[in-house]
Design a protein around this nucleic acid. Sequence first.
RNA 1: GGCGCUAUGGUGUAAGCGGUUAACACGCCGCCCUCUCAAGGCGGAGACUAGGGGUUCGAAUCCCCUUAGCGCUACCA
Length: 492
Amino acid sequence: MSSEQQVDPTSPTRPVRVRFAPSPTGYLHVGGARTALFNWLFARKTGGRLILRIEDTDLERSSETMVTGILDGLEWLGLGWDEGPYFQSERLTRYSEVAARLIERGEAYPCFCAPGELASRRAEATDRKQTWKYEGICRSLPRAEAAARLASAEPAAIRFKVPASGSLTFTDHIFSRITTGYEQIEDFVLLRSDGHPTYHLSVVVDDIDMGITHVIRGADHLPNTPKQILLYRALEQQSPIFAHVPLILGRDKSRLSKRHGATSVTAYREMGFLPEAFRNFLALLGWSPGNTDQEIFGAGELIEAFSLEGISRSNAVFNLEKAMWMNAQYMARSPTAVLSRELEPWLRERGLWEPEFAAEGAARLHAVVDLLKSRARSLADLASAARPYLSPSFELEPAAVEKNLRRHEQLKVLIPELADRLAGLSSFDLTTTEAALRELADERGVKAGLLINAARTALTGSGATPGIFDVMVCIGKPEVVRRLRDAVRLIA
RNA sequence: GGCGCUAUGGUGUAAGCGGUUAACACGCCGCCCUCUCAAGGCGGAGACUAGGGGUUCGAAUCCCCUUAGCGCUACCA
């Protein structure tokens, strides 16, 4: 009916203020992380401010450890905020004030109906597949009676008076016009009988108090937005711009949940994702930079390219394969020194960390990282692949041993010979090692590949490695010679 | 059940106001490179744009219906 007047996004008088408002009832979900990212990008893009607010009004389900988990997740993704975190649990009196004011204005009323009773009536109705909404029994209670019962400390919730008929239309920045009939909306609770606000009240009060200009949040909030707009009106405040972001789904297109695999950003960190890569991947889920083929975006480029208009209206399926690809891209492109530093916890976990790695140059570690970074999909991958280069004890892959060593009896003499020749080199580098190996192959009339693959498995236990001469140089002469000699026992 | 939203290859997305052989990326399959594996390069398969009706000279783009998925429908957020 009446179309809402909203904040003009181009108004020079109102600098952009957005917020990320997670509820600490779980770890930072990838969907929440993406919402945070979009808010962050929008704030950076527009020169606005990002406010972090913790919506912990559900005492039962909120916890402090979840709060730190969420903060850690944001920090890991590099999504810094400009204000907060504010906690709704610390603003309780403010919400009751507003609720009281709404009662005074005749926009809300106390409700004495027993929650349990209401719930059972609701359940009964849905069992019969019928619609049921609170019929507003207490709405028509005489003012005096209501006041008396309140005074006698009878528990009461505060409900909002929703217009009996008509409809409300508002413009969402992503979904455009949304219309809802009031008959769909019941007199919803603003304040629980324990004095805690419900989401609708606290979110509106806070967004007003914090001067929020754009509400960028998950599309699961879309159907409830009319309730909130009603509140803005009742409080004689302008509504912010609403921009609802479509949801992230699992493989089977149902809501992303544990059974689809990891849902918390912490889990992706633990898998060995680079935060920049994961952030880049997330940005491309439900948002597109438009008519360009670019997919790899640094933080600056992301900010530059971002706009609300590029956000899609349909839900997106989380594709781990592509996320891994993205991560591999970032791994390969990361400066070796940076990657080496990120690798520390992963190497420690595997007992491969050496104090010398912490030093400036850390040449030995850098050489390994350099060698492996273009073929690792994650930090975990990289750390595992690094073992043969950092430690004399590594696993032998049975299949590789079989294929490259055991099967070839001639290696029994060739491998020790190769070891001798390498041992005799005065300079041990790419050219000298390659020349030594190829000469030997020529002289003995075997293909170089035979020696190369044998050396590969003898030196690393694996059938797939970087170029063999790079491997040799990286491992170093004494250890190369030792491992070759040792490998003879593996040949049939 | 009611209400709302959405619908382009398996997945993520392009294709400004209706006019393209419907593009790119992931994944998949080949080939090249090559000592293996990645990376990289080249090529291929895979979409009558969910289905059906309209409007129009012309529809992935506009309208309607159907279907499907998702969301909301709480003294959760």
